[in-house]
């Protein structure tokens, strides 16, 4: 290992962190719903695909960018609230595996519906940000990555503020802590669930556009959720902070592994390295880095 190229290392690291922010974003969508209703919403990926597909199709039909964005957001909110009302609410109090199966089924229905409405071809999505590298103090960074990370970071910041400092956020954390007590105190659970699903819809929209612009809008886009799973394992399923840190760690480590260990393992590490980390974590620290520390006196 002579002549370690530090600048190159930083480039890889920063690139990894930037894509990590996008993992965090998808993971937060999971965490929000998991915390309030105990559901691991597997349909998050399908929602993301649905959002990207709806947006692209609208734009391709000549709808202006901003209007298409607004319409898609509305559609996502409606979709989220419909899912909550028609599928999850009737299943309240059912075992987690039932709920998980319900969202799994749902994700295929959403994908099927998307296919039915918008067709199966791959769409290119151009958000108007060119992908030329930008030089910042000697390090080359993709402009698009920077933009995507900035958008994702803004979302994360807004959500954090919302949940930390507002009454809706307080109600959200209360429900996450003890649903029965929240009911007894008079908190309006349906309203909280609707808020959470709206946030999840918004996240699906933003993540769908960012990932769609990078990978093309196609059905494999819904597999982005599979990338969120290791992030959740690492950060804990019930921690927003965990989703953020987990996303960054996974993003950075998989890029670094690809570059520095790629030769040893014969390349393609990026596609499985995250899962290897997650698996190791499951063995060492099943609750994740920030998962539910028991805040309780013995």
């Amino acid at each position: 290992m002579t002549g370690f190229d530090f600048t190159f290392f930083l480039e890889v690291l920063v690139g990894g962190l930037l894509s990590g922010v996008m993992y965090s974003l998808v993971a937060i969508g999971f965490v929000l719903i998991y915390k309030t209703s105990g559901v691991l919403n597997f349909a998050q990926g399908a929602m993301l695909l649905f959002a990207a597909l709806t947006f692209v199709s609208l734009v391709e039909r000549g709808v202006p960018f901003a209007l298409a964005l607004a319409i898609t957001f509305l559609v996502m909110v409606l979709l989220g609230i419909t899912i909550e009302r028609t599928v999850l609410r009737p299943l309240v109090n059912k075992p987690p595996i039932t709920l998980f199966m319900a969202t799994l089924g749902l994700s295929y229905i959403i994908e099927g519906a998307a296919q039915l409405i918008w067709g199966t071809q791959v769409h290119g999505l151009d958000l108007g940000i060119d992908d030329t590298p930008l030089e910042i103090s000697g390090i080359l960074i993709s402009k698009f990555d920077l933009f995507a990370a900035a958008v994702a970071a803004t979302m994360v910041a807004v959500l954090t503020v919302l949940f930390r400092w507002t009454r809706v956020g307080l109600a959200f954390r209360a429900v996450a802590d003890d649903q029965f007590a929240a009911l007894a105190v008079g908190l309006r659970l349906p309203r909280i669930w609707a808020t959470v699903w709206t946030a999840a819809g918004l996240i699906a929209l933003v993540a769908g556009l960012l990932w769609g612009a990078r990978l093309g809008v196609q059905f494999s886009l819904s597999l982005v959720v599979l990338k969120a799973l290791p992030v959740l394992v690492l950060g804990g399923f019930d921690s927003i902070l965990g989703a953020i840190v987990g996303g960054l760690l996974i993003g950075a480590s998989e890029k670094l592994a690809e570059v520095y260990l790629g030769d040893v393992f014969g390349g393609g590490i990026e596609s499985w390295f995250a899962y290897a980390i997650a698996l190791a974590f499951l063995l060492i620290r099943p609750a994740g880095l920030f998962g539910q520390k028991l805040v309780e006196r013995a």
């Binding site: 307080l170 007590a181 007894a184």
Partner: peptide
């Protein structure tokens, strides 16, 4: 049934 991860004051505010 306090909200355990919320502070005492946050509990009251709920």
């Amino acid at each position: 049934h306090c909200f355990k991860s919320l502070s005492v004051e946050e509990n009251l505010i709920t």
